[in-house]
């Protein structure tokens, strides 16, 4: 009877798994999730950012994206902080000073414009989400501070999306101001293809192919979403190194303690300990100053 039960249970499991895998394959229509494969330097447990790529990526963001997309959680000081693009402090200061920041109110109660400082947040292209949507045909260009974390697929998705603009297949209907992108969920995107060969000019002489530019700006966005990635990886490595040593020591100690359970040595030792303790206690008890 037990053997029968085993067989019945096994058959049911197998049929469930088969059904599910079949159902899953039926359900994965819609967006293409086979993102383009790229080697990201920040992936893996030792991953770090490519500084030059981050600096170029910042330039791409500023030249291409910043007209519509904000990165409101970034501050200009972040540009010179460790683990980021690591611009020199003077460079970061100069970058900040290029922007006009509304400050105030002053003594007269009025807001005024002053050049940006390191402590300022990145200036937003639009005062609020509604203004941003109104200026962009009703589609709000999302804030990109945490975009790399806010999209399934992260860096690969962003990179693929930038590279995924295509002519719509014949017979595919697109409204005005809507574009076809093979990686966008639903394939319809309101952002025109932002990046093309040579759209920016790199000071360091890196070639300005579409792929290179997309890669740089994606790297920048990953950093923007996760500015402590390098510190995290570094600390993680140290923590693991430490934990493995401690785990080994604790395990060996545990084995030793357990092996002594009830053994003669332990008993003797414990007796000696108790005895010694009693002696010490008696001695202490005799001292009238110790306790009142």
């Amino acid at each position: 009877m037990l053997v029968h039960l085993n067989r019945i249970i096994l058959t049911i499991f197998i049929s469930i798994i088969t059904t599910l895998s079949f159902a899953d394959s039926q359900h994965s229509h819609g967006a293409n999730t086979n993102y383009l494969k790229t080697d990201w330097s920040f992936e893996g447990i030792f991953g770090t950012f490519d500084r030059a790529s981050l600096q170029r990526g910042y330039q791409v963001y500023q030249d291409v994206c910043a007209g519509c997309h904000s990165v409101q959680h970034l501050s200009y000081r972040n540009l010179s902080e460790k683990g980021g693009p690591e611009f020199l402090p003077e460079e970061a200061k100069a970058i900040a000073a290029q922007f006009e920041v509304t400050d105030g109110p002053n003594e007269d109660g009025e807001m005024f414009i002053r050049p940006g400082r390191l402590s300022d947040k990145f200036v937003k292209p639009f005062p609020n989400a509604k203004a941003a949507a109104a200026a962009n045909g009703g589609a709000y260009p999302p804030d990109m501070s945490v975009l790399a974390k806010a999209r399934k697929g992260g860096a690969d998705y962003i990179y693929s999306l930038l590279m995924g603009y295509e002519e719509a297949p014949t017979g595919y209907e697109l409204d005005d101001g809507v574009y076809y992108n093979k990686y966008m969920p639903g394939n319809k995107i309101k952002m025109a293809e932002p990046i093309s060969d040579g759209i920016v000019e790199y000071a360091d002489g890196t070639e300005t192919t579409k792929a290179q530019i997309s890669k740089d700006v994606t790297t920048f966005l990953v950093w923007a979403a996760d500015p402590h990635l390098e510190a995290r990886h570094k600390m993680g490595f140290k923590v693991f190194f430490y934990l493995i040593i401690l785990l080994t020591l604790v395990y060996l100690s545990k084995q030793k303690v357990w092996s002594q359970f009830g053994s003669k040595e332990e008993k003797e030792e414990e007796e000696a300990f108790d005895k010694a303790e009693r002696v010490v206690t008696e001695y202490e008890g005799e001292d009238p100053k110790t306790f009142k």
């Binding site: 990886h233 490595f237 923590v239 693991f240 934990l243 493995i244 401690l246 785990l247 604790v250």
Partner: peptide
Amino acid sequence: LLAFLLLFFAFVFF
């Protein structure tokens, strides 16, 4: 607990 922490910190850090 220490073995469990290895899993825990694998998520936290990586």
